[in-house]
Design a protein around this nucleic acid. Sequence first.
DNA 1: ACCTCTCAGGTTGTCTGAGGAGTTGTTCTG
DNA 2: CAGAACAACTCCTCAGACAACCTGAGAGGT
Lengths: 230, 230
Amino acid sequence: MALGALHRSPLVDQAVESLREQIAEGRWPVGTRLPGETTLAKTLGVGRSTVREALRALAGAGLVQARQGAGVFVIATSPAEDWTARLRRAAVADVYEVRMLVEVQASRLAARRRTPDDVTALHAALEARRAAARESDAAFVDADIALHAAVVAAAHNPVLTDLFAEFVPRLREGLVALVDLLDLRASDPNPGDDAHAAFVGAVERGDADGAGRVLQEELEQTLDRLRRAG
Amino acid sequence: MALGALHRSPLVDQAVESLREQIAEGRWPVGTRLPGETTLAKTLGVGRSTVREALRALAGAGLVQARQGAGVFVIATSPAEDWTARLRRAAVADVYEVRMLVEVQASRLAARRRTPDDVTALHAALEARRAAARESDAAFVDADIALHAAVVAAAHNPVLTDLFAEFVPRLREGLVALVDLLDLRASDPNPGDDAHAAFVGAVERGDADGAGRVLQEELEQTLDRLRRAG
DNA sequence: ACCTCTCAGGTTGTCTGAGGAGTTGTTCTG
DNA sequence: CAGAACAACTCCTCAGACAACCTGAGAGGT
């Protein structure tokens, strides 16, 4: 039976839709309190648990937030804009610059917080980068990014790790294009190996200043190229 | 755990987190069915309504989909969640740390790129912060954040500006709670005024190192307090 | 052998009633 | 007038009941 479309939607979904519309229309501006569950149940004509589930769905979507004893508050009128989409629209050089700021500081943290496991992972990533020297440009860029991601992970801050992960797709895109455009690997298939090795060593030694400095120089060089190529 | 630890998280949120993790880890791949509500209730040690609300929240976030009579199915393992939702879940101290890393570097850029307009805006924001010393904690935090946002804007990198804006809601929440909790403005209604003034001066002079140093000291102090409060 | 129908068991959907826990504004007290 | 105590509200959690629905297995007919 292809009647799936004819399904009348569950009451919860109808309630979610109704509330979402009213929030989008500004009936309850951001920061204000929604009516209580019992009130909403009466006005929507459904049971209290149904209202609660609808509110949970909206909370999961990031539109409202419940505070026990106080009420349910509107925290956004529409689903927030996709950050990855914003990055896709931005100039690669701008993205790269922010990545540089973030990672240089992350490397300083990493030098202070790295565990033995982190050091092992860093050496493995460095080796993988060397191994990728024989591969395609895309594979080499992937290995390079993986090394940098390992550094950020060693800073042990989940927000930082997520943030860097957010940058990866756009970075990869820009770097592959750059390597291809400037033919960076024509003379040396493994550019920047010394710098990366020195950098890993600095993190391993716990030398925050050294790690930050080496990384900044390396990244700034690429940033300059990106700017010129852009 | 951070400031979130000031209030115990509701069982529903714990259930959501547990399920979200297990889905992310691939315990139930995309397309498979989750255990039934009664089963989940037993394994999670909560009532069935609680499980239902947790599942609704995940459905609202786009991770699962319920089909009456059939079960609840995983439709995505990667939370298609927006970045702001992720920040809302993260510990305030972690968010603040990243903000610190970003802003310290941003201030160095700002010192090199600031225009006369930027300097004017910075002085205006500094004055507004002083004026807010007579206002409520929330108003003071807002003025403080506005000053820092002006610094970031002076770095003239749109990605950076957007990134900082993304942090603002969560920062604001955490800072207001912190100021209130520790009664930071009891003795001095305008804490950190010297540091902020010195900082604005450094940016104005184009002193990147000085600006970065002053800002880092100021922010690290607050970060410490956040960590201790958590 | 194949198709259809029926049906039992399991699943989500919905409602109600009852407390527990937290917040907030008011009222009372010293 | 300031602070404590209270009451009224809010969301949180559970348990139980029944309805609506899907699925798969088996009975029965072709």
